[in-house]
C-alpha cells in the first residue's frame, strides 16, 4: 500500500490555496464537490485531465496562503496519490499530515521530474523513482512524531486514542 505509481503533473512555485481550491467554492465542505474544482485557478482544465493515482509535482512553498483544509482535501479527493514539492507552506504541511494526504519534500525530484513522467513512490522509505530512467530521489524524512500521526491514520485517530486512554 505504501508504494504508489502514477503520472506526474507539474506546477510551479508558490502555488497558493486559492489556486488549489478557489474560495468561491468554499460554501461547501463536500469533498466530491471540492474535487471538481481542484487546481482550477492554476489550470482550469486540471479537474478533467487528472486521473486517480496521479501525482502532483511542484516547486517551492506549495500550499501557501490560507489555512483551508479544503485544499489538501480537494487534492486527495481528486484522486491525487501524493504531492512532491521542493518545499511546502507550513499550514498545508500540517493539514496534509492531519488528513492523511501523502506529501514528500525533495528539491532534486521537483527539479528533475517533467509532466507526463511515470514515477514510483515508496512512502515508507521516502523514495521517489522516475520509471523510464530509473533515477532515484530521497525525500526529507518526517520527524518520528509525525510518522506516528500518519501511522495512526491522521490526527483525529491519534487524539481519539489519547483521549480514550485518558492520557
Amino acid at each position: 500500500m505504501s508504494v504508489l505509481k502514477g503520472k506526474v503533473w507539474i506546477f510551479g512555485n508558490d502555488i497558493d490555496t486559492d489556486a488549489i481550491i478557489p474560495a468561491r467554492y468554499l460554501n461547501t465542505s463536500d469533498p466530491a464537490e471540492l474535487a471538481r474544482h481542484c487546481m482550477e485557478d492554476a489550470d482550469p482544465s486540471f479537474p478533467e485531465k487528472v486521473s486517480r493515482g496521479d501525482i502532483i509535482v511542484a516547486g517551492k512553498n506549495f500550499g501557501c496562503g490560507s489555512s483551508r483544509e479544503h485544499a489538501p482535501l480537494a487534492i486527495k479527493e481528486a484522486g491525487i496519490a501524493c504531492v512532491i514539492a521542493e518545499s511546502f507552506a507550513r499550514i498545508f504541511y500540517r493539514n496534509a499530515i492531519n488528513i492523511g494526504l501523502p506529501i514528500l519534500e525533495s528539491a532534486e525530484a521537483a527539479a528533475f521530474l517533467k509532466e507526463g513522467h511515470q514515477v514510483e513512490v515508496n512512502l515508507d522509505k521516502g523514495e521517489i523513482m522516475e520509471i523510464s530512467t530509473g533515477q532515484k530521489f530521497f525525500a526529507v524524512p518526517f520527524p518520528p512524531f509525525m510518522q506516528e500521526i500518519m501511522a495512526k491514520g491522521g490526527l483525529i485517530n491519534f487524539v481519539r486514542e489519547k483521549v480514550t486512554k485518558g492520557e
Binding site: 489555512s67 483551508r68 483544509e69 493539514n95
Partner: peptide
C-alpha cells in the same frame, strides 16, 4: 498562528 480544521478539532 493559523492551523487547519483537523487541528482545531483536536
Amino acid at each position: 498562528t493559523g492551523v487547519g480544521s483537523t487541528d482545531l478539532a483536536a
